[in-house]
């Protein structure tokens, strides 16, 4: 089960009216390397991985949901007051027709989220390497998102999220180190 804290993991501030940035941010909302993909991927892998790593997947998977919430807040702030004309100019005309101002799990190109973004091979090393790659791809996506805006307040939130990807990658790499030792070997001191 989960406990919910009614606040964001890191404060989200958006200072520039830029609905097109909302479209780009959707890559991290419902994209292949986005926060929803990450959260579902890690939480699902917990059931078929050695005990030592289950807690790590729970912790990181949970944190990904708090990142999803930050991205949602950014997208909401950037679109909530946009007129249909502004949304159309931002490339979100189709989004408006289908969803009005609602958020939707889709990537920056408008493709709907799909479970095929998730990977679960059941092999612990394969899955952890998948997770490391996912973190690096998310880190890169945040870099390109930072490049796409000159709003320093939005950049601040994106930089926080990028740094978290680096820490997560570090932890997954440590998990591989834990699993690759000769675990059944007798220890002599």
């Amino acid at each position: 089960m989960w406990l919910y804290e009614k606040k964001l993991q890191y404060p989200v501030k958006v200072s520039k009216c830029d609905p097109m940035m909302a479209k780009y941010l959707m890559e991290q909302y419902g994209g292949a390397d986005g926060e929803l993909s990450a959260a579902l991927r890690y939480l699902n892998q917990r059931y078929s991985i050695p005990n030592e790593v289950i807690g790590l997947l729970t912790d990181i998977g949970t944190e990904e949901f708090s990142h999803l919430e930050m991205i949602a807040t950014m997208i909401y702030k950037l679109t909530k007051d946009a007129t249909p004309e502004q949304l159309k100019a931002a490339g979100l005309g189709e989004h408006y027709v289908m969803h009005d101002h609602a958020l939707y799990y889709q990537n920056s190109a408008g493709d709907a989220f799909t479970a095929t973004y998730l990977q679960a091979k059941g092999d612990p090393i394969a899955d952890l390497y998948e997770d490391i790659a996912a973190e690096e791809k998310a880190r890169a996506t945040y870099q390109w998102l930072i490049d796409m805006t000159d709003d320093v307040d939005l950049q601040d939130g994106l930089k926080f999220l990028r740094e978290r990807e680096i820490v997560h990658s570090q932890r997954f790499r440590e998990a591989v180190e834990i699993l690759k030792v000769e675990r059944d070997k007798q220890k002599f001191f």
């Binding site: 890191y10 945040y142 870099q143 930072i146 490049d147 950049q155 930089k159 926080f160 999220l161 990028r162 740094e163 978290r164 680096i166 820490v167 570090q170």
Partner: peptide, 19 residues
């Protein structure tokens, strides 16, 4: 909180202008 990590050793920033 501002840096996104508890440890200076893990802080690895990205600056778009510099990049």
């Amino acid at each position: 909180l501002q840096k996104g990590t508890l440890w200076p050793a893990l802080y690895s920033p990205y600056e778009k202008v510099k990049m």
